[in-house]
Write a protein that binds this DNA or RNA. Structure first.
Lengths: 188, 188
DNA sequence: TTGTTTATTGACTCGTCAATCAACAAAAAA
DNA sequence: TTTTTTGTTGATTGACGAGTCAATAAACAA
């Protein structure tokens, strides 16, 4: 039972965060959506905070899987870099609840050490993926450019999720790819 | 009295948001910090939500003033673009409470129409400033590149505020400027 | 069968907090 | 001086919510 309950609760947590847009969500609502009493949610997760962290971890896990899949299917070094970018703008990442999870994740990372650690791991892995793909073409510049692209992915995602780029993930990815193209085309 | 009280409350609100890292801040705490009763805070702002919005508006106003100042002091078109970028990474924007305000602003923009409107205005103005500065050098590409830079500013800010770039605003600005340099150097 | 672990909940505790209101004070207008 | 407007608060209300607990049931082991 335990793994089933935990999975249901995590799913319900993400759904409720998406609905509220924030972490102002009650354990009762989450438990209700998952079809159980709030006491049981506390039984399995101990606290609301732990439940949130598990949910965040789940979002990251899904995103990581997507990136790995895209990397595996990509051809060549440049192709791998572009695959990472495109995976970051897949429709899955623009579902209301995923956007909400990310934004609240950032907020949580300010004050919650575990959330911060989690975010760092994600950012490091992203930069590492990009650097590995760009090293052959860019050499020493690969590090800086990878950081730039990683940051730009998050920034463009933010704009696409909340701003004028809304609802056009393809155009969003194109912006980041444009940067990559410039760096590849005219090497210093 | 009214303008003084309002200003104190806004200042206290930003400070408390910075302290908590989130919007989970009580009107009482804010009022206490501002040296008055919570009833008075409600008297002047009507609701917690209105107080938050006023605080967000204040953060945006300060940022806008900084950008305008930098623009006025800049020389040439390219200089103006670089001024916008550098202003975005000024120490003022990396104060704990300003970071907290921005992150929570994004969260709020998902569900609060006024916050969303405010954010759109800020984003539009930023892109418009950049486009105006880049038009002479980039022509038709100015629009796309401006959107890219605007997004990258927010993304790099996010990384600098929460991630590995932490505490090095100059390096952060350099990442964005690198993108600009590429676009200027090798025109398609 | 009996005892033990696992699953589950309703009811409850204890605390918090936004918003209201009646009342008081003080300045300004009449 | 009286009246009105403005500034101010303590006390209260009404609601909500995290976490606990005792109790029940069901599977399972001895």
């Amino acid at each position: 039972m335990e793994p089933i309950r935990r999975a249901s609760l995590i799913k319900a947590t993400i759904a409720e965060i998406g609905l509220a847009g924030s972490l102002e969500v009650t354990v009762s609502r989450i438990a209700k959506r998952a079809g159980m009493s709030s006491a049981l949610a506390h039984h399995y997760f101990g606290s609301k905070e732990a439940l949130f962290l598990a949910a965040m971890r789940d979002v990251l896990r899904l995103y990581g899987a997507e990136v790995r899949g895209a990397l595996a299917a990509a051809e060549g070094a440049e192709g791998r870099a572009r695959a990472v970018i495109r995976a970051s703008f897949s429709p899955a990442n623009f579902r209301r609840e995923v956007i909400a999870a990310w934004l609240n994740f950032y907020v949580l990372a300010q004050s919650q050490p575990q959330a911060r650690r989690l975010l760092r791991v994600y950012q490091r892995r992203m930069v590492s993926n990009l650097r590995h793909a760009l090293r052959p073409a860019l050499g020493d510049r690969a590090g800086v450019v990878s950081q730039g692209i990683a940051a730009m992915i998050d920034g463009v995602y933010l704009h696409a999720a909340l701003g004028p780029l809304a609802a056009d993930p393809t155009a969003a990815a194109a912006l980041v790819e444009d940067y990559l193209t410039r760096e590849l085309e005219c090497r210093a």
